[in-house]
Simulated scan of single mutants.
Amino acid sequence: MATYSSAGVDVKKVKGIHVAINDAIFSSLPDYVLPIKGHYAGLFRTGNQTLAIHTDGVGTKTLVADQLGKYDTVGIDCVAMSANDIICVGAKPLVFVDTILLAKEDDRLVMEIMKGLQEGARQALCAIVGGETAIMPDMIKGGRKPFDLSGAMVGVVEGEPITGGKMKVGDAIVGLESSGIHSNGYTLARRVLDVKAWGKEMLEPTRIYAKPVLEMISKCEVHGLAHITGGAYSKLRRIGDYAKVGFLLDNMPKATGVMAELEKKMASDYEFYRTFNAGIGMCVACPKKDAAKVMGIASSHGIGAKVIGGIVEGSDVILEKDGKRISLL
């Protein structure tokens, strides 16, 4: 049975690297940078505005695109990974720049990638204002048309940033349905899934939550937002640390489609829920009284949503499944 570490990714070690990086960069910062450490975006002030910035990539999902010879959707993933992160601090996406690394000059490949980037920007309500294209044959190798894709996004926060600090014991956690694997866990997914059988589902673009989440923020009392990406539900600690609370996930959806196939391949529930989104791409923490309204907004945008758990005392992230309680940290 499969584990992420057996595929070459040790999430706990990665977390340690993140801590070391944050300690280094936050040891000395100018006063226009907000001291919000280890969150989904960096925050800084310019004039009377608070801006958020984030950078991310598509990871090894690019290898799936190359295996299938389909390159016009991974750009959506690239935009999604930054957009979904900056909205977690309450930022509205403004502008995006991309970096495309190629093994050789290939204008057709670049234009296919650009189709996805432009569609992603449309969904995220932002503009692509520039980027970088580099030819690096000594580093970008293998496959039909090897490439790497990443980007960076800036957004504006109207009012105070959402850090999770307002979460309270008893708040509901509303899970917004994912469109599939999204853009994390592919180093393992590619090892355990047959791309010939599951390629279409594996390449399904990451859902972009900008429109519904910004509407939720404007119409509901949103206490915290967590994008479920690398490390999956352990990501909830990013917002939990600000309120010194824990999380109980006791009503997770049943895995279907490609997620059900991945669940069957995993060594344990811990490995599955610590590696993959399990059908939920974004978590919204809100008072119980607002949960129905949050779910209604999601539904109006064509996104399934349900209460998957709640905020509890402590500092753990607990999955309750089949009578077992499993720490996901």
Rank of each mutant, 00 (worst) to 15 (best):
R144Y: 14
K145C: 12
F147Y: 15
L149I: 03
S150N: 12
A152C: 12
A152T: 12
V154Q: 13
V156S: 12
E158M: 07
G159Y: 13
E160Y: 03
P161G: 11
P161N: 10
I162S: 09
T163K: 10
G165Q: 11
V169E: 13
V169N: 11
A172C: 08
I173M: 09
G175K: 04
S179G: 15
G180C: 07
S183Y: 07
S183W: 01
G185N: 02
G185K: 00
Y186V: 00
R190H: 04
V192L: 13
L193A: 10
L193T: 11
L193R: 05
G199K: 11
K200F: 14
E201K: 12
E204M: 09
E204Y: 06
P205H: 08
T206W: 03
A210E: 06
K211S: 15
V213Y: 05
L214R: 13
S218A: 15
H227V: 01
H227R: 08
A232G: 06
K235V: 04
I239C: 08
I239L: 12
I239P: 00
G240L: 10
G240P: 01
G240H: 04
D241K: 14
Y242T: 06
Y242W: 15
V245W: 06
V245K: 10
V245S: 04
F247I: 15
L248P: 00
L249Q: 05
D250T: 06
M252E: 04
P253I: 03
A255G: 07
G257A: 10
V258G: 07
A260K: 14
A260Y: 04
E261M: 11
L262C: 08
E263D: 08
K265E: 14
K265R: 14
A267C: 11
S268W: 09
F272G: 02
F272A: 05
N277H: 10
A278G: 00
A278D: 06
A278M: 06
